[in-house]
């Protein structure tokens, strides 16, 4: 059992949880994830590790309730516990000295981006962070990211905070200005957003790294359910990723495979009590 020490709500349905997991806290590097299995009969949910404190033996996870099992996780209060957490899994981010980089986060992806942006800044990169969301309440971690970013730029679909529009509009402005054009872009968020970023940077030849979150079971390369097409090769996101070259990822296939269980998910959702159903966000994948 893994004890939940803290559970805060950052945005509607977005939780930051601090969990006691000493082995994982000690081994974890930025970019890696865990698999959380909240209860005996639950699903195994892959979640990127937001932060870790090896001394305290804790990890921080950012979670959005998108289905029955993620709902079970976020409704576990401080003092409660989660049955299983396995990790750290996947390859750590390759932190290089790029010079100027842009880190682009959409929705919950901003939380996944946070440890990566921090590590890039610590390695001496000049980090410009772009955060996107539906509206002001969904813009998370702006202050935390500002602590090490040269600039934090915000885009909301309804214009309630920052520039109205998408993160790609903001990124395009950066690229078009030779004084701000990044040498590398890190984009983490909903698949359509990552695809749009990759398409934007492709003609400029700017290296673009994305972090993929396909359907997964064991997270150790055993089942192959998380396979993604990268260039001509089939890769397992759990062991070969989760980060890949955005210009090589087949995003269409990724989106298609993410829809594999849509009918089952809808059925499970329909069976949930209404008050719980309202807590779940429909995420655009």
């Amino acid at each position: 059992m893994f004890k939940v020490l803290q559970n805060d709500t950052l945005a509607p349905n977005v939780h930051r949880m601090v969990i006691h997991a000493p082995r994982i806290a000690k081994a974890r590097k930025p970019g890696q994830f865990v698999i959380v299995h909240p209860e005996a009969d639950g699903e195994r949910i892959p979640l990127t590790i937001g932060d870790a404190d090896p001394q305290a033996g804790t990890i921080t996870l950012f979670i959005q309730a998108v289905g029955a099992s993620t709902l079970k996780i976020v409704t576990t209060p401080a003092g409660g516990s989660l049955r299983d957490i396995a990790g750290p899994l996947g390859k750590p981010t390759e932190i290089e000295k790029w010079g100027r980089v842009a880190c682009v986060g959409g929705g919950l992806g901003t939380a996944v981006l946070y440890p990566l942006a921090k590590a890039l800044a610590e390695a001496g990169n000049e980090v410009t962070t772009i955060i996107g969301g539906r509206a002001k309440p969904y813009i998370i971690l702006a202050d935390e990211l500002a602590a090490f970013s040269t600039d934090v730029l915000v885009a909301t679909e309804d214009g309630s905070l920052g520039q109205q529009g998408f993160v790609t509009n903001v990124l395009k402005d950066l690229i078009d200005n030779p004084d701000t054009r990044p040498n590398a872009v890190f984009a983490i968020g909903p698949v359509p957003m990552m695809r749009a970023v990759a398409e934007l940077t492709r003609p400029y030849g700017i290296k673009t790294i994305v972090s993929l979150n396909p359907i997964m079971i064991d997270g150790t390369g055993m089942c192959g359910g998380c396979r993604v097409k990268v260039g001509d090769e089939t890769k397992f996101a759990c062991v070969d990723g989760p980060e890949f070259d955005g210009h090589l990822v087949d995003f269409g296939l990724l989106m298609d495979r993410l829809s594999m269980y849509r009918d089952t998910e809808a059925k499970i959702m329909a069976e949930l009590p209404e008050e719980l159903r309202d807590k779940i966000i429909k995420v655009k994948r």
């Binding site: 089942c223 192959g224 296939l253 495979r257 829809s259 594999m260």
Partner: peptide, 15 residues
């Protein structure tokens, strides 16, 4: 092989 409905036996049986 990456179509929906294609499983490795490991995934099918583990599920």
């Amino acid at each position: 092989e990456n179509l929906k409905g294609v499983y490795s036996a490991n995934e099918y049986l583990t599920r």
